[in-house]
Simulated scan of single mutants.
Amino acid sequence: MAKGDRLARLDALREDMERDYREALVAALRITAAGKWGLFDHRKDRAARAAAAPVVAQLTEMGEEIDAARAQLGLSPFALHAEFLAARGPVGPEAVGE
């Protein structure tokens, strides 16, 4: 039963981490929506990239921890984090901005 208890605790921790990730991402998206560039790194602006770097690093670290917990539980990777990472980076000239 010890293994079952450990997995149950890990699953509860995973749920908490996913909730914290969503809250952090929503906070970052609100800042972006208010006009602060850099979260998605769509522009070649070093200042915007540097300003957003701590938030991106925090989200990436959180996403990696969640993925590790999900792997231990036999679950698929955290889709929200994968979508965030996929949305970052250079885009075509006709793409919608941040």
Rank of each mutant, 00 (worst) to 15 (best):
I66K: 00
F78I: 02
A52F: 05
E15R: 05
R14S: 14
L25M: 14
E61V: 00
K44H: 07
A50K: 10
E65C: 10
A57V: 05
Y21Q: 01
R19P: 05
A50N: 10
E18M: 10
E83L: 10
D67A: 04
L80W: 13
A86W: 09
K36M: 12
A48Q: 04
V55I: 13
A24W: 04
Y21M: 01
V91W: 08
D45G: 02
A57S: 15
E65K: 06
G35E: 10
G38V: 02
A82P: 06
I31R: 03
V26N: 10
A24F: 07
L80F: 12
L85T: 09
R70A: 05
E18S: 03
A52P: 05
E65R: 13
A69Y: 06
A28K: 01
A71Q: 14
A79E: 15
A51C: 02
V26L: 13
A28F: 06
A68R: 10
K44N: 13
V56H: 04
G89H: 06
A12K: 11
R22Y: 12
E65A: 05
L80E: 15
R70S: 08
R49E: 01
A57T: 09
L73V: 08
A48V: 01
A27K: 08
L29Y: 07
I31T: 07
M17W: 13
I31V: 14
P90C: 06
R46D: 10
P90S: 12
R70Q: 13
L29R: 05
L39D: 02
A53W: 00
E64R: 12
A79W: 13
L25Q: 03
W37C: 01
L73D: 14
R30A: 02
F78N: 00
A52I: 07
V26E: 15
L29M: 13
A51G: 03
G38Y: 04
A33F: 08
W37Y: 07
V91C: 06
A12L: 15
A33L: 11
F40P: 00
R46T: 09
D41W: 00
R46N: 08
K36W: 05
A87N: 13
M62R: 14
L75I: 08
I66R: 01
A87Q: 13
T32R: 05
L59D: 10
E65D: 15
K44S: 11
A79P: 00
G63F: 12
A69D: 14
L39Y: 02
V26F: 10
D67K: 02
L59I: 08
D67H: 11
P54V: 02
L39R: 00
T32I: 01
L75Q: 14
D41M: 14
R70I: 08
D16F: 10
Q58V: 07
A52S: 14
E61Y: 04
R46E: 09
L25V: 04
M62S: 13
Q58G: 08
A50S: 09
E61P: 00
G35K: 04
V91D: 04
A53Y: 00
E15L: 11
R22P: 03
R43V: 05
Q72C: 11
I66D: 03
A50F: 00
A79L: 15
G35I: 07
A28P: 09
F84A: 00
